[in-house]
């Protein structure tokens, strides 16, 4: 009987985790495949995405497989953006206000970042975080080092919320990798 309860509970929770049905990947798969091809040199046809978990918030985690092996893990996440007329309020990162941006991060099997890419930036403010040049500094760093060393990369003046939200998303990715 206890086992039945446990199974039912696990089923309910599983349903809650898997309700999104890969929405973010559907939106950005072409762009992500193109970036993987550019960064890793693997052609589109060789890469497949295996959904592992929809995350705590608007995020999706995938194992990225090639024909022969696992390339690593991918997180696609909708994170908090700076919003109307400002990005500096340090108390706002955890609020539920409505603006967002979408980001993809690919790590190898050891958790080292292969790329971080902003896929879509809706807000009028804080868009500096999406700069390709800025995001390059995340490459080759462990996705788990930001929890201990938030200054492992430079923040962006005038885009504090977007920066902190990006760091939070990497920490969430690290938690996922630890738990998987």
């Amino acid at each position: 009987m206890v086992l039945n309860k446990l199974l039912f509970f696990i089923f309910c929770c599983s349903m809650s985790f898997f309700h999104q049905d890969m929405d973010l990947l559907k939106s950005y798969e072409k762009s992500i495949r193109k970036t993987i091809k550019k960064q890793v040199g693997i052609t589109d046809a060789e890469v497949s995405f295996h959904l592992m978990q929809d995350g705590r918030e608007k995020s999706e985690f995938y194992q990225v497989l090639t024909a022969e092996s696992s390339l690593g893990y991918l997180m696609i996440k909708e994170v908090r953006a700076c919003d109307l007329n400002g990005c500096n309020n340090k108390n706002k990162e955890t609020s539920l206000e409505g603006e967002y941006y979408d980001v993809a991060t690919l790590v190898n099997n050891q958790g080292i970042i292969i790329f971080t890419k902003v896929l879509n930036y809706f807000s009028d403010y804080g868009y500096e975080i999406s700069s390709k040049r800025y995001l390059t500094q995340y490459k080759n760093k462990s996705v788990c080092q930001f929890a201990q060393q938030p200054l492992a990369v430079d923040g962006i003046s005038g885009a504090t919320i977007s920066y902190n939200a990006l760091i939070d998303s990497l920490n969430e990715f690290c938690d996922f990798l630890d738990d998987k």
Binding site: M1, N4, K5, L6, F8, F9, C12, C13
Partner: peptide, 12 residues
């Protein structure tokens, strides 16, 4: 037996 886990699930 079903309600308690179901409620827990709703809370979650």
């Amino acid at each position: 037996r079903v309600i308690i886990p179901f409620l827990l699930c709703l809370v979650f």
